[in-house]
């Protein structure tokens, strides 16, 4: 039988650490392992889809660049026809099963991509400065407000960046094969800034 390996397993063994914390600068980078990801694909006009999302997690389908957060669930806009449902890892398969049942009458699809992406929380005062050493987006608070989500490139790799709240915290996903590279890039950042 195949061994299941979470995206960051390899990383934490290599680094033997869970959190990168630079006390001087106040930067804190935490690998996030307890969240699952469901990719929802469909038409934003699809009433079945909207209804299913509303009934299952109480959220509305968010418009471009935005998110809808309901408790432990967050629905992130990805493309005009794709959304990412972020939820506690333990509930992933249950929610997926429930949504599959609800979406049966429509053409919408739902896929568990939890293990495709590695997730990091980057927090602390210098979080924005550190990210802007490798990301061409304008991440200043007035331009990248709470709730904004963007797919872009960070540190030369494809990434999703999300600002869940007003605090100095960004949640980033990169492809799992780039997790090590991304971690190294972040680990290098205190010297950088």
């Amino acid at each position: 039988m195949l061994e299941h390996r979470a995206p960051l397993d390899q990383l934490s063994r290599a680094r033997n650490t869970e959190t990168l914390h630079d006390a001087d600068a106040g930067l804190r980078v935490t690998p996030v392992t307890d969240r699952g990801l469901l990719l929802l694909q469909g038409s934003p006009e699809d009433a079945v889809l909207r209804d299913a999302i509303g009934r299952q997690i109480g959220a509305r389908v968010p418009g471009p660049q935005t998110t809808d957060i309901r408790g432990e669930y967050a629905l992130l806009w990805m493309t005009p026809k794709e959304w990412l449902l972020e939820l506690p890892a333990a509930e992933t398969s249950a929610v997926q099963g429930a949504l599959v049942a609800r979406l049966a009458p429509s053409l919408a699809a739902i896929t568990d991509i939890s293990d495709a992406l590695a997730c990091f929380d980057i927090g602390g005062d210098p979080a924005m400065d550190v990210l802007m050493t490798g990301c061409s987006l304008d991440l200043r608070p007035h331009a990248f407000a709470a709730g904004r989500v963007a797919r872009t490139a960070i540190a030369d790799v494809h990434a999703i960046i999300w600002k869940p709240g007003i605090a100095h915290l960004f949640r980033c996903w990169v492809d799992r094969s780039f997790a090590e590279h991304f971690w190294n890039w972040l680990a290098d950042s205190p010297a950088r800034w």
């Binding site: 050493t133 490798g134 990301c135 950088r192």
Partner: peptide, 9 residues
């Protein structure tokens, strides 16, 4: 030596 880049708006 170390060299870095930075984006700014």
């Amino acid at each position: 030596d170390r060299y870095e880049e930075r984006y700014e708006h």
